[in-house]
Design a protein around this nucleic acid. Sequence first.
DNA 1: GTGAAAGCGCTAACAA
DNA 2: TTGTTAGCGCTTTCAC
Lengths: 339, 339
Amino acid sequence: MTSSDAGTPALRVTISDVAAAAGVSRATATRALKGEGRFAPDTQQRIIEAAERLGYVRNTMAAELAAGRTGTVGLMLRDASNPAYGLLFSRLQDEAHRRGLDLVTVTIGADEQGIKQVNALHRLLGMRVAGLIVATGGIMAAQLEPFADQVPIVRAGRVEPSGRIHSAHYDDPAHGRLLASHVLSLGHRNVVVLTGDPEASYPEHLRGMAMRETLINGGASVTMISAGARPDEGVSEALSAVRPGGTAIMCASDYRQLAVMRAAKAGGLDVPGDVSVTGCDGILPGADLLGLTTVRIPVEEVAAAAVETMQKLLTSDSADIVRRPFTGTLVPGTTAAAV
Amino acid sequence: MTSSDAGTPALRVTISDVAAAAGVSRATATRALKGEGRFAPDTQQRIIEAAERLGYVRNTMAAELAAGRTGTVGLMLRDASNPAYGLLFSRLQDEAHRRGLDLVTVTIGADEQGIKQVNALHRLLGMRVAGLIVATGGIMAAQLEPFADQVPIVRAGRVEPSGRIHSAHYDDPAHGRLLASHVLSLGHRNVVVLTGDPEASYPEHLRGMAMRETLINGGASVTMISAGARPDEGVSEALSAVRPGGTAIMCASDYRQLAVMRAAKAGGLDVPGDVSVTGCDGILPGADLLGLTTVRIPVEEVAAAAVETMQKLLTSDSADIVRRPFTGTLVPGTTAAAV
DNA sequence: GTGAAAGCGCTAACAA
DNA sequence: TTGTTAGCGCTTTCAC
């Protein structure tokens, strides 16, 4: 009743079935199937054949429960509809594949708060993952912290304020400075900075603060507008704020930049003729055609560093906290011009 | 040795620890913790408190192994760096969240063939997932088929040729027809169709074939160019093919469209003045600013239908195969103009 | 309302 | 080289 006709796999086939079919004990079957320990070559052959014939698929839960360890790394991800996260996700996966790490991913919806995040965290911890890569915004340092000494945790993309959690992250303040310097060098001295408030997007907040500081140090007058998460929020305010003499709007993300350009177009404002506009992220396909002035964030490097760090933590267990920032590169574009 | 100071969670805390701390048996602890079966309210209270105090996190593997069933649905995903897949991924997650399904995701790198796909499949099957949603291209019908009667399988995004696998998919031929009709209505009668070959992208192939048929039926002369997966492949051929009298290049994806526009710009060709260009997908942020003529694929509907189908299959078990196509909408844009 | 006991499918010593 | 024996942590009848 467990097995069935040849060629018809059955998830109900257990290793006992395979062992019986090959005329050996379960222990031998286990060893032969994973190729570890001692066994006769032809015995292994028989066992493998039996397994294939019966369509045996090892029950991972049972295997890992018995072995007392897990080979997989958990990945907590934020909404992947944002290409910046989608790309990060993709690169993390690639890198993990390359290094032979198995990844299981759970996501937390864009607008979900604490409770859901904890659920997702527990789902992963419940699987007893060997490590955790966290690529999501939510302020979960406090949730994460308690587990940090039981399972290695690496935050990817965002700097980790907490003490025991590693990170490979974007240097958002540097990105803000890069853009602000560029805008200053173009001669702008009256600038509107449109950013997300800390709640909505902490990285945007960091970028915005850095822009502000650099601009002010450069002798510019700055109007800060901090809006909600939706990219079109704050756009009309930014536009009206720039009219009385302003020459540039610096956005903390490409999404906001697009929203501003859309609104400018609708309002008959020429970019960069009437107003220069900058963004930040630089990963939109087609951004080059639009001539977006932005910073290309170093997704690939962050992903590689995060996975590399995780692997290191999994093998050796050094005690020091790894915290590696990466800076992107300025993409001059054509949406920002000299005054 | 198992538990520890209050407030310090430990992944090593088992239900036995919790039960002991609350002065009950494991059986009672289990029941109280999941709120099923019979138990005294204050007993439950005590148990929950003990669990929280000890930082208990249920071992999912053990739980599901013992219970003999799994609450999670597996999702096989293709590389999410493509925004079309990223968005699909995101919407699938949202929909699953909304319906209370737990999803675990594994991805297969963009360029990996058979063997890796089978690995990914086995990872999921090995977890004994309750169902499988497959949102990836690879021609895995043959791999999937054998498991189709043991676990419900729903393909998302692409039509499933196989007999026992459900699907919620894009109606790619319809998208091709939609665009071709539009181009015809603009008066174009000499058109180049740039598409991916079947190996590189089957959906693109379907779109391209449909475009061709519609164009020819409409009295146009058509040059087909089928290229590899990289969007810049075939672009120069397309451009030279269109020069001798052609007026439009229809691309089977927005990526190719962008590549064509880039090359046209570099070659001093005006779009749509010298040549009209169309794409397909319609999910690039900023596509509106570019004025892309395209079809917006119905990602949300496909995602919702896929998850809905899965849930239906998980609860009731009707025998009929569900296969639901969805058609997107034409986005006229400004990259295609009347001849 | 609660506990005792028997596994779920697999692995890992240890014997043989 | 192979088999025997204990579990991994949890759930679930079935008595009490």
